[in-house]
Write a protein that binds this DNA or RNA. Structure first.
Lengths: 111, 111
DNA sequence: AATTTATACATAAGAGTTTTATGTATAAGA
DNA sequence: TCTTATACATAAAACTCTTATGTATAAATT
């Protein structure tokens, strides 16, 4: 688990973006997808993921559908209408954040 | 102060990158420079900055030179040799992080 | 002349997020 | 049979940052 501290604070945005794209996902699926996208670099821990999902649900940004697959429980999460709107904002913030960090790493002459 | 939570965990990297570039800077100068680069979006609070500088110094990554300018105290920080080496690593991590986040926001077909 | 803003440092309490550790349970693979 | 993978969950501790507060000088505004 190489997780540098840089990922701190980005978990909610990651979850919401993946749900926006995929429609619905369950917790374990999210961890595997993130691991795949980051080529194993980012491993979301369960201790971070499940409380985050519960909080987003409590805030009315996600809703859950419980299903039993292969005799195992799955909790599928999807964005609510409110969650969809909020995701737009979060992604805009993320784009700004990335731009700002790139400007710091690779400064334009003039600052 | 709009500081989205995305910036959490990036303060040390920002400080080290700026010092690598500028040679030496004092705390207040760092806050102003970051505000300028991010067009006012990221305002580093003193409660975050000063403890961070002290910690980096305690870790041997920064060293300090105190000077009095216009009858006001300034503490100039610069990277130590150890700090220079560590900065290379932190910047590599930052580049990876940015790439990974971009892959999440703008996914390549195939995941 | 008095008040506010800017410069320049600092720390403590509280909030928020994540890691680490632990727990339960089923299915698949070695 | 034992380990790994799947799938959820929570509590304690660690870490980082915000908010609030404090000191002090200089410059700008009212």
């Amino acid at each position: 688990m190489k997780n540098s501290s840089l990922y701190k604070g980005s978990l909610n945005t990651i979850i919401m973006k993946l749900l926006e794209e995929k429609g619905r996902m369950y917790g374990y699926e999210i961890t595997q997808k993130v691991k795949a996208i980051t080529l194993g670099e980012l491993n979301i821990t369960e201790g971070a993921l499940y409380p985050a999902l519960h909080k987003l649900e409590a805030e009315g940004l996600l809703e859950v559908e419980v299903e039993k697959v292969d005799n195992r429980l799955r909790k599928y999460y999807k964005l609510t209408e409110k969650g969809n709107k909020e995701t737009v904002n979060r992604l805009a913030e993320l784009e700004e954040f990335i731009k700002n960090m790139q400007n710091i790493v690779n400064p334009k002459l003039s600052y």
